[in-house]
């Protein structure tokens, strides 16, 4: 059986147009961690490092913010990513929520 030649159609690539995922997505959701005085400071620091991949210094800064101010803004992201972070933080039983950024 003779092979049928199928014209190959490739997408046109415009080198001047790039998709910037962070710019294209709505990053108007805040991940906030609230103070639960029961949580150990070292534990909170460890969880921030694990979930966000932060270094110790940055994780401790946010932990202290939670401790002193009652809350800390951990991330401003698009909805799905922010939800992902909240799920991860709550798996460790940290009091984290997702809030809409003020317009």
């Amino acid at each position: 059986m003779p092979a049928t030649a199928t014209p190959e159609v490739l997408p046109r690539i415009d080198p001047d147009r790039r998709t910037d995922s962070s710019a294209d997505l709505d990053s108007g959701y805040l991940v906030i961690c609230w103070d639960d005085p029961v949580n150990l400071m070292a534990y909170v620091t460890h969880v921030f490092q694990t979930v966000f991949g932060w270094n110790r210094q940055r994780a401790e800064r946010h932990m202290l913010e939670v401790h002193k101010n009652g809350k800390s803004l951990l991330a401003r992201e698009h909805l799905e990513k922010a939800e992902f972070y909240v799920h991860q933080l709550q798996k460790y039983n940290l009091h984290a929520t997702l809030e809409r950024d003020a317009p």
Binding site: P37, L40, M41, A42, Y43, V44, M63
Partner: peptide, 24 residues
């Protein structure tokens, strides 16, 4: 609470290699 916290600190100490104290 205290017993759970005791083991948490022991495990965190193992992971970080540093002595740890304090509640958040």
């Amino acid at each position: 609470m205290d017993v759970a916290g005791f083991f948490e600190m022991a495990f965190l100490h193992a992971l970080t290699g540093e002595p740890l104290t304090g509640d958040a």
